[in-house]
Simulated assay, not measured.
Amino acid sequence: MNISMEQLRYKEVVSLADGTRFGYVGDLEVDTDLGQVTALIIPGRPRLLGLLGREPDRTIPWSAVRRFGEDIVLADLPGQRGD
């Protein structure tokens, strides 16, 4: 399956283990030597409408990605919560 970054931006990452919603894909981490995606980057949530900055970005390892759906990306991340 081929998927573009533009298509990924509209997909929400959801935990396969417990249904936790982590957020939408904002960027990719790529190993330029191998030419492979190594992780999905989800931007941190704004604190107090962005006045207090943002929470740290969340990195989802590519190895944890299990399936791409029409609107979501399922990732196997046991023990991680999105809250």
Rank of each mutant, 00 (worst) to 15 (best):
M1P: 04
M1K: 11
N2W: 01
N2E: 08
N2K: 09
N2A: 04
I3Y: 06
M5P: 13
E6Y: 05
Q7R: 11
L8P: 02
L8Q: 02
R9A: 04
R9P: 07
Y10W: 01
K11P: 01
E12N: 06
V13E: 02
V14A: 00
L16V: 09
L16W: 09
A17K: 09
A17V: 02
G19Y: 12
G19H: 04
T20R: 00
T20I: 00
R21W: 05
R21Q: 12
F22I: 03
G23M: 05
G23C: 06
V25R: 09
V25Q: 00
G26L: 05
D27N: 15
D27G: 10
D27M: 02
D27I: 00
L28P: 10
E29T: 08
V30A: 11
V30E: 15
D33A: 08
D33F: 13
L34H: 08
Q36H: 12
Q36F: 13
V37E: 00
T38L: 13
L40Q: 13
L40N: 11
I41G: 07
I41E: 05
I41D: 06
I42Y: 04
I42D: 04
I42T: 02
I42W: 07
G44C: 09
R45N: 13
R47T: 05
R47P: 09
L48N: 14
L48M: 14
L49C: 15
L49Q: 13
G50D: 10
L51Y: 15
G53N: 07
G53R: 03
E55A: 14
P56Y: 14
D57Y: 07
R58W: 12
T59A: 12
I60K: 13
I60F: 02
P61K: 14
W62M: 15
W62Y: 14
S63N: 08
S63D: 11
S63M: 03
V65H: 10
V65T: 12
R67E: 15
R67P: 07
R67M: 13
E70Q: 15
I72N: 12
I72G: 03
V73C: 06
D76N: 10
D76Q: 02
L77A: 02
L77M: 11
P78G: 00
Q80I: 12
Q80F: 04
Q80N: 00
Q80K: 06
R81W: 08
R81H: 02
G82C: 02
D83T: 01
